[in-house]
Design a protein around this nucleic acid. Structure first.
Lengths: 411, 411
DNA sequence: CATATTTGTCCTGATTGCGTATTAAGTACG
DNA sequence: CGTACTTAATACGCAATCAGGACAAATATG
C-alpha cells in the first residue's frame, strides 16, 4: 500500500503539469490550471521549478500577436524543453529490431531498423544485437551514449516491468531471462523492459490513435498475441507487475476440442498452412511473411486462406471476450499481422459482431492501426520518458530521483 | 485525472490507518506505524482525530498484562468503535434476498434471509421487497432506519457503481434501471449498488478466504457469471465504473460452433437438462435448484450429469483464460452453484489444468468457497463501510463528507 | 497618454508530514 | 521501597504543499 507524503503529492502534481504541457505542446499557465484544476499559485510554483530545472521553456516571444481576445497581458506559452533528456526506445520482435532515439518531447531524433530473424535466441546473442543497434542509432542522432538518460526495451511475451525480467517470450529460448540487467550493464545506461503491447499502447496514447482517450485496449497481433489495458490513463499491470498475455486464451467447445488462441491466430498457425511454398519460407526468413501470405492468398492458396480466416474468427471472439470483460470505449488492433488485410479483418469483424454482447457493440469501437514499427519504438521511448517524467504511479521508484539528478546535472 | 492536495493526502493516510486497525482488530500505534510506514507522530495525529471523532477507541485497560517483553511503557491498543456507524448490506439474487445489518467493524448485528424467486421483476416490485427486507432486518437489530448510515445492494449483472444504475441483470426485466435512486428514496438512506461478484470479493477480503491477499480474482457462479478483480487491495472497475461480467465470454471452436459461457454454465443451461422432472421445477421455485440437481445426478440422471459436466468444463476454461490474463495468485470460486459439488468441480479442475498455461498452474491457487449468502451480504455491507471509511479512491466523493458529518453529529 | 483587462507572482494563512526532544507509564533490580 | 531503565506516545520546530488575495507586468483600447 502506498502511503502519502508531501513528496508524493508534489510528484503527482508535477507529473500532471508536465503531462499537460506535453499533451498540449504549447500552453499557458492559466490553461494548465483549467485542465488540471490546480490553483494558479501552485501552477506557478511547479512551472517555476520546471523552468529552473530546464525541463520546460517559456516563450514570451511575440509569436502569437493575435491571441484572440487580445486584451490584457498576453499569455506566456510553455513548452517542453526538447533537449532536457534523450531516451532510446527499442522494439524487439522476431522479424527484426527497431530503434528510436527521441528527445524529451518524444519526437524522434533518429530511427533505425534492423530486419533480421530474432527467434529463440540466447540472451547474449540478443544483447549483442540490441547493444549494437542502440549504439548505432545513438550515433546516427549525433549523440553519444553518455547523453542518453534511459533505454526502454519492448518485446513480446510476459514481461515483469518492475524487475525487468522476461518470464517468457518468443524471442528467447530460455525462460526467466534477466534482460534489463544484462543490457543495462553493457550500455551503462538505465534500462527498463516492457511488453510490446504496453509499449504500443503508450505509443497510441501519446502519438497515435488514442490521444483523446484514457481508456482503451490494445491487441498486438504479431509473434505472440499481446494485450494492453489502458485504464484511466495508466497501464494496467497484472498482479506482479506482469504484462498481460492474450495468446493463452482458450477457445474450444464442448466436443473436447480445445485450442489456444495462439494456436489458432499465432504466426505459426497461419504459416503452417503454406509450408510447402519456398518463397514463403524465404519471406519468413526476411521477416515479412504476412505480406507474402496475403499475396499467396490472393493468388488462390486455399490452405492459407482458410488458416487466416480461422485466425480472424478466433481473434474476433477473443476481442469480443475482452470487450465483454472490460467494456472499453476503444479497442486498437496493431501489429505486423494486420498486413493480411481483409483476409484477416473481415472474418474478425464478422465473428466479433456475432460474439460481442449487443449492448456493447456500439459502445466499443474497433480501430485498426497499421502503424509501423516506429510507433512501437516510440512507444517504448514513451515508456522511458514516462518514468523520467516522474510518474508517481510507476512502481520503479528511482525514476524520480533519476530525473532530479538529471536536472541537477543540468544546472 | 486526480489532483493531489493536502486533503487528499490526509484522506489517504487516514484511510490506511483506519483500514489497518480494522484488519488487526486491536493494534497499538507503533504497530500501525510498522504496517503503514507512517511516522509515529503522524499516526498519533491521525489516531487522535479518529478518537476525537469516536471512530476508534483506545484501550489502556490492563487487558494484556503479559505483553511479552513487558519492559517499558505498555502499548495502548486501539480498536474500531463498533458503534460508530451501522450499515445494511443486501444480496439480491434470483433465489432470494439476504440482508445484514452490520456495525462499523463489519460484524453482523442482524441477518435476514428471504428465500423467494426474484426473477425478471419490475423495478417497483423489487424495490418493495428490498425496502421491506431492509426495514425488517433493521428492526431485528433493534435499530431504526434513522440510525443506518448507508445501504449497499449487491446484485448480479452489469452494475455501474458510480451512478447506481443497473445496466443489465437477471433480476430485472428491463435494462438501465435506476436502482439506488429508487430504493434510496424509499428508505431515505444513502444507497449504493455493486455487482454481487465485487461484493463477495470484498467479503472475502475482509472476512473470508482472502484476508491475507491483496490480489485475487473472484468468480461468482450463480444466476449469471460474475467476475471481480481485486488488484492491490482495490476492486478493479471497468472503464465507466462498470462491473465486469464473465457470462458473455465466448467459447467456441473452429467448426463454427460458438457458445457463450452463460449458455454452457449458466443456470438455465444446467437446468434445461432436467426440465421433465416435476420436483426439480419445484426446487427451482424454492430457490435451491442445484442441491436437487445434485441429488438427481447421484440418482443417475444422465442429461443433468452431462449438462453439469459441460458447465464445469466450460468454467475451467474460462478461469484458465482469466488466469492467463491476470496471473493472480489466488482465484476464489463462490456461489450457490457450487452446491453441485464434485459433479461440477471435478471437470472444472480437469479442464482448468488442461487449459492453463503450465507456468501459471503453480502460481495461481484455486479456492472453492461454499460460504453462504451471509458472506455476500456482509461483503455488500463492507462496500458501504468502505465508502464510509473515506476511501480516497472510491470515486464517490461525498462519502468522506458523509463520515465527517456523521462524526460531527456524534460530538 | 491614461485606463481597462488579463496574466503571472508574491505574501499570508492553514494544513500536512517528518524529526527530535520531552513526557508518560510501566518493569527490573538493588 | 525507591531508583534506573525501557518503551510508548506526544509536544514542538521545520519544511513543504495548496488556496486566497493583493500587487506588479504587459498589452489593447479610448
Amino acid at each position: 500500500m502506498k502511503t502519502a507524503d508531501p513528496e508524493l503529492m508534489r510528484a503527482i502534481n508535477r507529473f500532471h503539469v508536465l503531462d499537460t504541457i506535453r499533451r498540449a505542446g504549447a500552453i499557458s499557465r492559466v490553461e494548465i490550471g483549467e485542465y488540471t484544476q490546480l490553483s494558479a499559485t501552485t501552477i506557478s510554483a511547479i512551472t517555476g521549478a520546471l523552468i529552473e530545472d530546464e525541463l520546460i521553456t517559456p516563450h514570451h516571444e511575440g509569436d502569437l500577436r493575435s491571441s484572440g481576445t487580445g486584451r490584457g497581458r498576453p499569455r506566456v506559452k510553455l513548452t517542453l524543453n526538447a533537449g532536457a533528456a534523450r531516451v532510446v526506445g527499442a522494439k524487439i520482435a522476431t522479424n527484426g529490431l527497431a530503434f528510436v532515439v527521441s528527445d524529451f518531447e518524444g519526437q524522434p531524433l533518429a530511427e533505425l531498423k534492423l530486419p533480421l530473424r530474432a527467434d529463440r535466441l540466447a540472451l547474449a546473442v540478443l544483447a549483442d544485437l540490441v547493444e549494437d543497434g542502440v549504439r548505432r542509432c545513438v550515433h546516427d542522432a549525433g549523440l553519444t551514449l553518455g547523453e542518453i538518460n534511459s533505454v526502454a526495451l519492448a518485446l513480446p511475451g510476459v514481461i515483469e516491468h518492475g524487475s525487468g525480467r522476461v518470464r517468457s517470450s518468443p524471442i528467447f529460448r530460455d525462460t526467466d531471462v534477466q534482460l534489463t540487467e544484462t543490457i543495462g550493464q553493457r550500455l551503462g545506461v538505465p534500462t527498463i523492459a516492457e511488453s510490446d503491447a504496453n509499449a504500443v499502447a503508450l505509443g497510441e496514447h501519446w502519438f497515435g490513435r488514442a490521444r483523446d482517450c484514457d481508456d482503451f485496449l490494445v491487441v498486438a497481433v504479431e509473434n505472440g498475441l499481446g494485450l494492453a489495458v489502458m485504464h484511466g490513463g495508466q497501464l494496467f499491470r497484472g498482479a506482479r507487475e506482469l504484462s498481460l498475455d492474450l495468446g493463452q486464451m482458450m477457445l474450444g467447445g464442448q466436443d473436447g476440442s480445445y485450442h489456444r488462441l495462439l494456436d489458432l491466430a499465432g504466426d505459426d498457425a497461419i504459416l503452417c498452412g503454406g509450408q510447402g511454398d519456398i518463397r514463403l519460407r524465404e519471406a519468413v526468413h526476411l521477416g515479412r511473411p504476412m505480406t507474402h501470405v496475403r499475396r499467396l492468398i490472393e493468388q488462390g492458396n486455399p490452405d492459407l486462406a482458410q488458416a487466416v480466416h480461422r485466425a480472424g474468427e478466433a481473434l474476433g471472439i477473443a476481442i469480443a471476450n475482452l470487450v465483454g470483460l472490460f467494456a472499453p470505449p476503444r479497442v486498437i488492433l496493431a501489429g505486423a499481422n494486420l498486413a493480411l488485410g481483409p483476409h484477416l479483418l473481415d472474418p474478425l469483424r464478422t465473428s466479433f459482431d456475432r460474439s460481442v454482447t449487443p449492448s456493447l457493440r456500439e459502445i466499443s469501437e474497433i480501430i485498426i492501426d497499421e502503424a509501423g514499427d516506429e510507433l512501437w519504438a516510440r512507444g517504448a521511448a514513451a515508456v522511458a520518458l514516462g518514468e523520467l517524467y516522474g510518474s508517481p504511479w510507476g512502481s520503479t521508484g528511482p525514476a524520480l530521483r533519476t530525473m532530479t539528478g538529471l536536472a541537477r546535472a543540468g544546472e
